[in-house]
Each structure stands twice: as C-alpha cells, then as structure tokens.
Design a protein around this nucleic acid. Structure first.
Lengths: 332, 332
DNA sequence: GTGAAAGCGCTAACAA
DNA sequence: TTGTTAGCGCTTTCAC
C-alpha cells in the first residue's frame, strides 16, 4: 500500500541506492537517471519515510523544546523564535510544557532522548542539580534558553538580568524616589532572586537607600497578584514600582488608579518584558525589553552549531537589553 | 556505545523478545524474569529507541500540530489544550507555524506525514480545495480545530460562530442601538465572512436595520488596526461596536477614549474571544467566550479516537459558547 | 555512476 | 512463558 524506496527502484530499473541518492540530492547520479527516478517518484507518489531514515542515519532532524507553558505569552514568543530558526535549518520541533515541574522536566527530557531528537532547547526558572546532571550526560546537545546554570556546564543564552534590573532601579532612584517597591516574580527563580532582587538591593544601596524588605512582594507573575501587591504595599507608600513583567505592571497600574493615584504623576513604574501588552496599557509601560524571540532564535542557532559539530565561540551567550521609555515614568 | 535491547537481552540471559515484552508491559512474562530484566535495564541505563520502535510498529506516538502562529495568544491557548490531552494519552507533539500561508501548510502536512505522525490537528482560517484534497487522501487521521470545512469531509471541532455573533449583535440591538459597527478580522476567513459578518447582517435585518457597509471595517486582528478602525468609522458615528477579538477591542476603547467618548456610557462594545486580556482592559470587556483551550483539547481527544479506531459519534463537533458580561456594555 | 548487501534497534508473528 | 526469525524502509560502505 505505502510505496517504498524499493518500489521506486524497481519501477525505475535502478537500485535502492540510486533512488536514495536522488532523494538526498547526492550529486553522483547521472542527470538522465536522476530524471527517470524523479519521474517515477512523482508517478508513484513516493514519500520518504523519515522514521526509517532516522533509524538508518541516526539523525531525526527534529529537536525537542521543553518550556514551562506555551499559553504564557513569554514562552510562546520564545517558542516562535526557536521554531523560526529551526525551520530555517530544516528541523522540526517537538514541543512540551513542563509547568516548571521538575519531575515532568526530567521525564520530558527522557522522552525526547528516547525519541532520538538531534538536540534540545530547554527553559526553566530553576535548573535542579539532578536536571543538570542529566543534561551533562545527555548524548544529545542541549541549550538553555533564558535559564541560568551557574556552573556553566550547559550552553545557554540569556541577557544581563542583573544589569537590566540595576539600570531600571537606578533610573527610579535618579528620578528622586526613595521608596521604591519591587513586585517580583517567584523568588524560587534564580533570575528573580539572585539577579533582579540583588540588583534592586544594590542599586538602592549604591544610592544610599537602605533595603526594606517590606517593599518587596513576591508574586506569581499574574495580573491579579500585581493588583494585590499594591494593596500589600500601600501602607508603606512607595512612590515608584519596579515590576517583574508587563502583566503584573498592568495590575499594579489598575490598582493604583483605583486607589486614586496617578501614573506617572504620583507613582512611577518600570516594567520588565516589553511585550506587546506594554503598548496596550494606559499609560503605556516603560519597560525593560526582554528579547524572548531573540533568545529563542539564538538558542536554536547555537544548537544547530552543536548539532553540526561546528566550533562554538561562546558557550554562554548574553544578548543585549534596552529600556523602552514610555509613559509610566516621567521623561528625564 | 548506546545500549540496545540486544545488550539487555544478553546481559539478562533472555531473548530480545522478552526484553521487549517487559519494556512494553506485556503481562506474559514471569515476574522473576521481569524483575531480572528490569534490573539489567537499570544497570545498563537502557533507553528504548523510539525511532526503531516506530519503524517496527508503524506507530510513532507523536501527532502533528499545524497552527498559524504560536506567538499569537489565541493559537497558544489552543496549542495548550491540544498538548494537555496529547500528554494524557502519551503522545508528543510536533508543532509548526504556517502563518496561514497555503504553500507552507501544504508542505508542513507533507513533512508531518513523512515523519509518520499518528495524527494531525490542523488550524487555519481558510482550508483551500487543494489542502482539503490532500487531507482527504491522507493516510493519517486529521482533525480541524476551530476551522471550517463546509464539505464536512474532514473531522472538526468548532463553536456556533453564527449563533454567537448573532447573539452579540442582537444584544446591542436590544440595547437600542441603530448604528452598530463591526470591526472584523480578515474577510478572507470563512468564519469572519460567512458566519460572523452574515450573523451581523441578519441580526440587524431582523431588527429592521439596514445593512450599511460603511459600518464594517476589515482589520488584521491587531491592536493598532483596532484603533485605526475607530478613525475610519468615526464619521458615521456608530454608538456600538461588535469587535472580532479582545486585542482589537482594547484598541477600539483606547481610540474612543482619546476622542472623548466614554465606554459604555457613550459607546458600547462587545468583543469576541474572552482571553485574559478581557479582564485586563478598562473597562473590562464584555466578550463572547471563544473556548480555544477546549477546542484544542476536544480536537485532540477526537483525534485519539480516530487513531485508536474507536467509533466516532459525531465527526463535526460544536462546542458551546457563552457571553461574558462585563463593563463595556451597559447592564440590562 | 551505479549496485549489492549489511545493518540501524525494535516489534510481532510463529514456534516451542 | 519464552525464543527464533523476519521484517519495518532507509542509509551507507564497499565493490565494480
């Protein structure tokens, strides 16, 4: 029923090897026979079986992508970056959601390796020791996208989270604020705790402002918790907010406005993400551009280098960030 | 280097068949030998090769997903629904973006069939005749998610787009509006043109209001074009808007407010989608709930039935919708 | 430039 | 309950 390479060979009076050559674009085929074979392929509607090819060649031209949650716009953006570059290099993608659950991550890794993917792009807020161990002994190259492994054992692409956060907080300090709140994502995430929070603390310190833990609120990155954070913080009367993502920033703005404060006149806000939401907020958000798409794209590009065994110049790549100034801060 | 089923067999003093049996949970294995085999598997770190398995069994336990654009939150939501159910049934997903480009769709379909996926979930605003032809002759089951094929040749899951749109417009009519604008997505999409626009027209007609093409604006579903639509429509002074998605609705609201109109006092708006944006808008959007996640989940569930050759009760499933009343309309 | 033949690692009869 | 033996459909030496 399904037509195989053997059928084509028979029909074209050549060997399987020759059919394989024309299918794979091997140049060692006389134009005339190539043409003949192509004709038969067309007639028979032959479609190469990638599974058989994968078994024989030990290459599947598919890569695994493990991310927390595709329905979250940040990860979706990342995924698109990955997919675009994958397509460019003729790879397909097996996409899985881990929900940041470590067991699921471990098991997903196992499944993908079982499926013989040629490489893996992985994203998670926390890379456990166990996960790291498995990654290091993986027979297949892995790159971390927007995820920190401080041992630098695994390739990764990130931005300078510390620098970005420091700059944001410094901007608020420079605008004269003394009480600057930090509405953070989960502190279980290394990026939030060891980079953003640290930068927040040190930027304050460098400006002679003592760190006040009451001004820091840990949230789950959602709009609702952004709103709640304002209630929590209100008693301490912060005059500026540094917020971990755009969705929470919008929550913060709405809560502030409900309590009669005006942004940016009474309270300034700097967000972190710069998704398309930033322009859809009123006032539009000043936000640190976190280039998710690019991180995905560069991760995938880096992965192709590993898969082709090309030389790697830098195993840990750091992409630039920038601050997009809009209306939630006063112009300097 | 890589350990195969053969290595395990040798080490455990059993045949490959027995190892295969324990790996696949076949009950016809004496507990003692099962235990022995499991032990060797553990020791050797044996990991079954899914590609070889796929070749031998003609099942890959992976399904293809072809959607327009994963970075668009609607499709991301759909994808999550698909993935969750796929995971539940132990399938993995190969995810590809088509950007609604017909050639890409055709080629993606071809690639996935080549990769021997066990099934495909497909989404696109327009299913061309050529695509339909290929789908019908596909050796692998396909289900359309949130996509219309009027020949009913291919399985699909949708909502009652016409009914939903009709109800929305009727609500606006009932609130006394005579000049109701329709800010539509691309009219190349059957859903927009033959269902929503038609419902809009007929709901108006049924209320004795003549259709005025000036009140209909075709957009690309983006925030910016939502804003622009308002400028285009302003001369005709609509007092109510029916808008094709949440992002455009927010654009409409912002443009309206910039021009001094108040929502819902001066102008009422009903959106279509009810994503999490709907609650993040001010005023919060009254929106027709378009259950993307469910459509994805049900599509995948339907696909599993085809893949298992279960009996299908209904090939075209229609999911319920509802109207979520919030602040962009006046309460009745 | 082309063909023969040996696998790739596994499943699935069929026997025993 | 277990083993033997063909494949699955292709790539890849190695000859010619």
């Amino acid at each position: 029923m399904t037509v195989t390479i053997y059928d084509v060979a028979r029909e074209a009076n050549v060997s399987m090897a020759t059919v394989s050559r024309v299918v794979n674009g091997n140049q060692n085929v006389k134009p005339a026979t190539r043409k003949k074979v192509l004709k038969v392929i067309e007639e028979l509607g032959y479609r190469p079986n990638a599974v058989a090819r994968g078994l024989a060649s030990k290459k599947t031209t598919t890569v695994g992508v493990i991310i927390p949650d595709i329905s979250n716009s940040m990860y979706a953006e990342l995924a698109r970056g990955i997919e675009d570059i994958a397509t460019m290099y003729r790879y397909n993608i097996i996409l899985s959601n881990s929900d940041q659950n470590q067991n699921k991550e471990l098991q997903l890794l196992e499944t993908m390796l079982g499926k013989q993917v040629d490489g893996i792009v992985f994203m998670s807020d926390v890379i456990s020791t166990e996960l790291l161990y498995e990654m290091e002994r993986s027979p297949t190259p892995i790159v971390l996208a927007g995820s920190i492994d401080e041992t630098n054992a695994v390739a990764s692409v990130n931005i300078d989270y510390y620098g970005a956060a420091y700059e944001a907080v410094k901007k608020l300090v420079d605008n004269g604020h003394k009480k600057i709140a930090f509405v953070s994502g989960p502190l279980s995430s290394k990026i939030n705790k060891d980079y953003k929070l640290k930068a927040y603390t040190e930027a304050l310190l460098d400006a002679g402002i003592d760190y006040d833990e009451k001004l820091v609120v840990e949230c789950n990155n959602s709009y609702d918790e952004g709103m709640e954070a304002v209630s929590t913080l209100q008693p301490y009367e912060p005059t500026a907010y540094f917020v971990s993502n755009d969705e929470m920033s919008i929550g913060v703005i709405h809560a502030l406005e409900e309590s009669g404060k005006k942004v940016p006149e009474d309270v300034e806000i700097i967000s972190y993400e710069n998704s398309k939401l930033a322009r859809m907020a009123r006032p539009m958000l000043t936000s640190i551009a976190f280039p998710l798409y690019d991180i995905g794209a560069v991760s995938m590009r880096l992965l192709t280098k590993y898969m082709n065994e090309e030389e790697i110049e830098e195993k840990q790549v750091i992409l630039p960030y920038r601050i997009e100034e809009r209306q939630s801060t006063k112009n300097a």
